[in-house]
Design a protein around this nucleic acid. Structure first.
Lengths: 156, 156
DNA sequence: TATTGTTATACTCTATAACTATA
DNA sequence: TATAGTTATAGAGTATAACAATA
């Protein structure tokens, strides 16, 4: 009866979650926590956090865009983006180049090293995606989730 | 042609999100951000944040439980819970009572005022839920989301 | 006057480690 | 030895406000 001893003293299963059980915000937070932790764990070889990864992706697909457009695309404050870019620029993954038309703004580009790191990241993301697929009940459920979540918020 | 002038200079719609478009972590974060912001906005009359609300809910449904069980139920560190409870205790919403069987541990209870605030919070949460229903495409989509997100993570 | 990027501040949240008092 | 609660610290994330350079 080893199975019994494993459950011995596990009090969590007796917790009554009340209205949290069907609370979208609560389950979103729990799910996001799991996904981000798995992402960070998977990305440790490259030392890339989710926000840093998404910065690289957006710059790669929209080279030359301004910081304010980048912040808008990611849904973060432009003040917060400054520190993010400082770190990535320190690691020689991104470059702030002077913008041609507006001397206030910067044109964001990936360095060659940034492109290389992003390529490696995409490989690891594939692994991470497999873990998510399993955790969330297969490709159908995964795609349903993404569709229901993405339809509302992108540009906010 | 007012509609045209409103869209003038909106660059965001031309952004290419690349793989983020179908990235569960990315859409989870965007969705959670929206839901939490709406929650906080709706709760301003009671000045309750999502974490504080869930503490009240769990204690109400599991009176007398220990801090470590509470932290486990919420998926937060017990060290983080200390500050959360300090604030709620300062506001006279919760009480740490000495536990009967173990003098190291506390039995958590809501005060009468805590019960009153929770009741008011549940009313506001109903409003918040309506906003979410609309934002996420109606009750069917909402329930599908909750079901797909909740099935995996609760006790983690 | 308004916008881009920056700096500064404050608060929340996450993640650890170490300490105390009990068990 | 291990556990419950606490304290402390460091870093990430969020939200503002204000400033210089430029539009």
């Amino acid at each position: 009866m080893i199975a019994v001893s494993r459950n011995f003293n596990v009090q969590e299963s007796t917790i009554d979650y009340g209205p949290l059980e069907n609370d979208l915000g609560y389950v979103l937070r729990r799910a996001q926590l799991w996904v981000f932790q798995d992402f960070i764990r998977t990305m440790t070889p490259l030392d890339l956090r989710p926000a840093q990864y998404s910065v690289l992706v957006i710059i790669h697909h929209n080279p030359g865009l301004s910081q304010i457009a980048l912040a808008g695309a990611l849904g973060i404050e432009r003040a917060r983006l400054v520190r993010l870019l400082d770190q990535l620029e320190e690691r020689k993954l991104v470059e702030r180049r002077p913008a041609a038309s507006d001397r206030r703004s910067h044109a964001m580009h990936l360095t060659r090293e940034g492109e290389r790191v992003l390529a490696g990241a995409l490989d690891l993301v594939a692994t991470h995606r497999l873990a998510c697929l399993e955790e969330f009940g297969g490709p159908n459920n995964y795609e349903t989730l993404v569709r229901l979540l993405a339809k509302f918020g992108a540009p906010q």
